[in-house]
Design a protein around this nucleic acid. Sequence first.
DNA 1: ATCTAGTTTATAATAATTCTAAACTAGAAA
DNA 2: TTTCTAGTTTAGAATTATTATAAACTAGAT
Lengths: 139, 139
Amino acid sequence: MIISDNLKMYVQKLRSSNLRPTKQRLKICQFLFDRKKTFHFTVETLNKKINKNGTTKVSLATIYNTVEAFTSAGYLKEILTSKNKSYYDTNIKSHHHFYDEGSKELTDIHYSQIKLSKVPVPPKGKKIKNLEVVIRIQK
Amino acid sequence: MIISDNLKMYVQKLRSSNLRPTKQRLKICQFLFDRKKTFHFTVETLNKKINKNGTTKVSLATIYNTVEAFTSAGYLKEILTSKNKSYYDTNIKSHHHFYDEGSKELTDIHYSQIKLSKVPVPPKGKKIKNLEVVIRIQK
DNA sequence: ATCTAGTTTATAATAATTCTAAACTAGAAA
DNA sequence: TTTCTAGTTTAGAATTATTATAAACTAGAT
């Protein structure tokens, strides 16, 4: 894959969501989306990795803003786990997770690995936005 | 139901978990478990309600300690919803939730309302501790 | 090249939770 | 019953994650 191609793609992607393609946003895009496997992170870990060996620093505030903006735009998905920290996932397709209580690590469970044969009707006037299964595991 | 009977029961329950039956713990037990319907709460709401019209105040630190202790002891269940606040449920049976994105309210979904016809095998050396479905709803 | 709304940033503010260490208490032992 | 001690409660400080603020910067339209 040629990086510059992806860059163009990210510029378009951002523009299509009314987000100006700034240096910072593109750097974060490249970091998050220039990879084959999907990626789980918290703002804390993203901040560390983005600013590890970078020439230009991206401020923590911008990391927060960008993750929020990307989540609203649908580039990222917030994961439900609990405990005072938001986890995000670059895999925005409907899927599920193992949450390891010991290591606090998340692992994707592919959509097809869980099948629901019965799902309740939502309360009146409400629609189902998504359905997420978390399987807590331990030793 | 006679309150004093429940009190005795709570004393036993606490003792059986190596928790001394203190005034504060018993007060919280009564508040949480002397009810027919199951109850969802955050530490914040529990604190407010416990200390609303009480003669003796229970400190916030104790509310935290107690909720933590009751959760470890298996009297309470922590609910996964995200967003910087822990939710707890007096319904410790395996069950699921609707989470209303607008009102931020949780509603129980009875165990029998969701059926899984396929569940993945956990990673090697790990056991499934529980499985929880959250259905996010909105208008 | 100029201008402006959108963006970034350091820093302060807020919110939830955990820590601390002193005062208190349940309940076992004397 | 009184004494004693480990467990518990408590107010307040500390920590952690996140959001708000407002000044400086910049993309990109004019």
